[in-house]
């Protein structure tokens, strides 16, 4: 628990405007080594923009981003829209920015159980397969920090649980920090060190337990979230009792139906 705090990346007072609208308003964020930080917030709250700013792909209007020296980021984007007119196999995709040996490609894909996809065309993959290949690709960079943007979006519950299991194993073996964007409160609370709720500005931030009780969270997510949160609380108790993942799945799918 008590590890030496080593900041991988931090943003201070990040402001971003686009087309006269405020996208990010004074956002502070910090990710330490080995830590899982989750950014939550409703759609259009500026979560993906925040990630783009942290990566450096867009410059904020003001604010500062400090990266650890030689920080390697593994990035799992929300969506990859490759034109069907572009032929590209999973194997070639794994060598996207630098040439990688076939052995490394195979072994990395096998971490996420995707080694059988190696010769498949990228645009023929299902949503879940795509996300696993993207995750494997980010692992190939040997990152200090993994950044995932809504990685389980569109996956069925079983796929989500498998994905998070792979992620946890990867995090442990690489010892990297994880920054994840999600609008799924449910999964977030279960395995996260720090939660940051944003709706253009930071609504509330801190440990999941603390954030859960923050009225700003309920306010932000509205009526629906209150129910979801109550539901989550129920489940959280289960987790403390040592309930398995399977129980979680059943409960969630029950709630969904």
């Amino acid at each position: 628990m008590v590890k030496k705090r080593e900041i991988l990346i931090s943003g201070h007072g990040i402001n971003l405007k686009a087309g006269g609208r405020t996208i990010l308003d004074h956002i502070d964020i910090e990710i330490n080594k080995g830590e899982i930080v989750t950014v939550i917030g409703p759609n259009g709250a500026g979560k993906t923009s925040l990630i783009r700013v942290l990566i450096g792909a867009i410059k904020p209007d003001s604010g500062k981003i400090i990266k650890a020296e030689n920080l390697v980021i593994g990035y799992v984007p929300q969506r990859v829209n490759i034109s069907p007119l572009m032929p590209i196999t999973v194997k070639r995709f794994m060598s996207l920015t630098k040439k990688t040996s076939p052995i490394d490609i195979k072994s990395t894909l096998s971490i996420v159980g995707a080694e059988n996809l190696v010769e498949r065309q990228f645009h023929s993959l299902s949503g879940g397969e795509t996300q696993r290949v993207l995750l494997a690709h980010s692992v190939l960079q040997n990152p200090d920090l993994l950044i995932l943007d809504e990685p389980v979006q569109g996956m069925d519950i079983g796929g989500q649980v498998r994905f998070y299991t792979h992620l946890e194993r990867i995090r442990k073996s690489l010892g990297c920090g994880v920054l994840m964007v999600s609008h799924d409160l449910h999964m977030v609370m279960a395995a996260t060190d720090k939660v940051i709720c944003i709706h253009h500005h930071v609504c509330c931030a801190g440990e999941p337990e603390k954030v859960r009780q923050d009225p700003a969270l309920v306010e932000m997510f509205g009526e629906k979230a209150v129910r979801s949160l109550a539901f989550y609380t129920h489940e959280h108790n289960h987790a403390h009792d040592g309930a398995s993942n399977r129980d979680t799945i059943t409960e969630k799918s029950d709630a969904a139906s």
Partner: peptide, 15 residues
Amino acid sequence: VAATVHEELAYAEGI
């Protein structure tokens, strides 16, 4: 090619 597949991904990996 990397930028065509995904600009931010390419950027994050140093392109």
